[in-house]
Simulated scan of single mutants.
Amino acid sequence: MAYVNQTRAVTATSTDRLSSLVATLKGGLQRRRVYTQTLRELNALNDRELADLGISKFSIPEIAREAAYGL
């Protein structure tokens, strides 16, 4: 019995690596923008508005982090 096994090695070109790096940086910048915007908007609320939402001033950074990074 005979069979053929053919494997092609694919290497990433420098253009592929650069475009991947750019995409990663863009994604990181976008997540950072979401984080800072969420912080800004929540910090602009007064204590009464935050209480209506069930949010403490101390949990604002955690909420912003979760909104941006899903952590």
Rank of each mutant, 00 (worst) to 15 (best):
residue 31 R to W: 07
residue 12 A to K: 07
residue 37 Q to L: 05
residue 17 R to G: 15
residue 37 Q to T: 04
residue 66 E to L: 02
residue 38 T to H: 02
residue 36 T to P: 02
residue 29 L to N: 03
residue 31 R to D: 10
residue 44 A to E: 14
residue 65 R to D: 05
residue 59 S to L: 02
residue 20 S to M: 04
residue 49 E to K: 04
residue 4 V to Y: 01
residue 32 R to L: 09
residue 50 L to V: 10
residue 18 L to M: 10
residue 48 R to Q: 14
residue 71 L to A: 06
residue 71 L to V: 08
residue 22 V to Y: 08
residue 49 E to S: 15
residue 2 A to N: 06
residue 34 V to G: 00
residue 58 F to C: 11
residue 23 A to N: 14
residue 29 L to Y: 00
residue 24 T to W: 13
residue 48 R to E: 06
residue 59 S to E: 09
residue 26 K to W: 03
residue 49 E to G: 13
residue 59 S to M: 07
residue 59 S to F: 01
residue 2 A to R: 07
residue 34 V to Y: 00
residue 68 A to D: 02
residue 68 A to R: 00
residue 18 L to V: 13
residue 16 D to C: 15
residue 26 K to S: 07
residue 50 L to S: 11
residue 66 E to V: 03
residue 13 T to M: 04
residue 15 T to H: 04
residue 44 A to L: 08
residue 31 R to T: 08
residue 7 T to W: 08
residue 56 S to F: 06
residue 62 E to G: 04
residue 23 A to M: 06
residue 62 E to Y: 12
residue 69 Y to D: 05
residue 54 G to A: 09
residue 21 L to N: 15
residue 43 N to Y: 09
residue 68 A to G: 05
residue 52 D to T: 09
residue 23 A to C: 10
residue 46 N to S: 12
residue 38 T to G: 01
residue 34 V to L: 05
residue 43 N to R: 10
residue 68 A to F: 01
residue 61 P to T: 10
residue 41 E to G: 06
residue 7 T to Y: 03
residue 69 Y to Q: 14
residue 63 I to K: 13
residue 70 G to F: 00
residue 60 I to C: 12
residue 48 R to F: 07
residue 9 A to T: 08
residue 65 R to P: 00
residue 29 L to A: 10
residue 32 R to F: 02
residue 36 T to N: 12
residue 37 Q to V: 08
residue 64 A to Y: 01
residue 23 A to F: 13
residue 10 V to L: 11
residue 36 T to F: 10
residue 6 Q to E: 07
residue 41 E to Q: 10
residue 25 L to H: 13
residue 44 A to H: 03
residue 64 A to M: 06
residue 16 D to Y: 01
residue 67 A to N: 11
residue 2 A to M: 07
residue 5 N to A: 05
residue 68 A to S: 13
residue 71 L to S: 04
residue 49 E to T: 05
residue 60 I to W: 04
